[in-house]
Computed example of a mutant assay.
Amino acid sequence: MPDIIFRDGSIRQNQWNVVQRPENGEALDIPTQQRVLIPADLWVENRERFIGNDDVGAWLDSHDEPEILADYVNDLPMIAVNFPKFSDGRGYSSARLLRERFGFKNELRAIGDVLLDQLQFMKRCGFDTYELRPDKDIRKAARCLNFFSQGYQAATDTDLPLFRRRAS
């Protein structure tokens, strides 16, 4: 498993495995003795089996609506949001909805085509951890998380836009 970067810039070993969606007709195969992230809709369908299990989280694909998890967000130890390609920004909206509208308090992770230049924006949207694309240098990630000293807009990390912060 690749290492991951945390929002404070620390690098740690990844403890979670992403379980891919099974092919048509196949059953969901969840490895035992591992922490796993399964497709969100399959987690919801089998939630009675997973609620209270801190070793099973869910992941949303870019086309998945985060509303499917709305009633269960804080029953999940982790939610990951997949970025299938760097130009697909739907994951930013999913993160903000999970944090601001649905009140998700646990770990929120960005997975998929995650690049260094996206990290600060992902952090502002509420992501806690980032699994970089394998060809990116994770040692450069800490600097990218805090590249700008101030954000102009309100986001999950600040309720007020910069002009209101300056006025107070």
Rank of each mutant, 00 (worst) to 15 (best):
F86P: 14
D61F: 04
I79R: 01
F50V: 12
D54I: 10
H63C: 04
Q34F: 04
S62R: 06
I79V: 15
G103F: 06
N24G: 02
P77W: 09
K85A: 12
L69S: 03
I68T: 09
D29F: 14
L76Q: 04
A80C: 02
F102K: 00
I30T: 04
L76N: 06
R99H: 03
N53F: 00
Q20S: 13
I30S: 00
D117C: 06
I51E: 09
P77Q: 08
G103H: 14
T32N: 03
F86L: 13
D54W: 00
P39N: 03
L28A: 01
G103K: 07
N46Q: 07
N74V: 01
S94T: 11
N82I: 08
G25Q: 06
W59Y: 15
Q118E: 07
A110D: 13
P22S: 13
Q34D: 14
R101T: 10
N53E: 04
L69Y: 02
V19T: 05
P31C: 01
S62E: 05
Q34E: 15
L60V: 04
L69F: 06
Q33Y: 03
A58L: 03
P31G: 06
E67T: 11
D55M: 11
D117T: 07
G112V: 09
L42S: 13
V19P: 08
G89C: 01
S62P: 02
L98G: 04
L116A: 11
S93G: 15
A58K: 00
A80E: 02
L69K: 13
R47S: 15
D64N: 09
F83M: 10
G25Y: 02
H63N: 15
P31Y: 06
I79H: 09
E100F: 01
A110M: 04
G91V: 05
P84D: 01
V81W: 01
R35P: 08
L116W: 03
F50W: 09
R99A: 07
S62L: 08
A95T: 08
L76I: 08
R90K: 13
E100M: 05
A110T: 06
I38L: 02
L108Y: 02
A95Q: 03
Q34P: 11
Y72F: 14
A95K: 01
D71K: 12
E48P: 01
D88W: 07
F104K: 06
A70Y: 05
V19N: 02
Q34A: 14
D71R: 04
L60W: 00
V81L: 05
E65M: 07
D71A: 14
R47H: 10
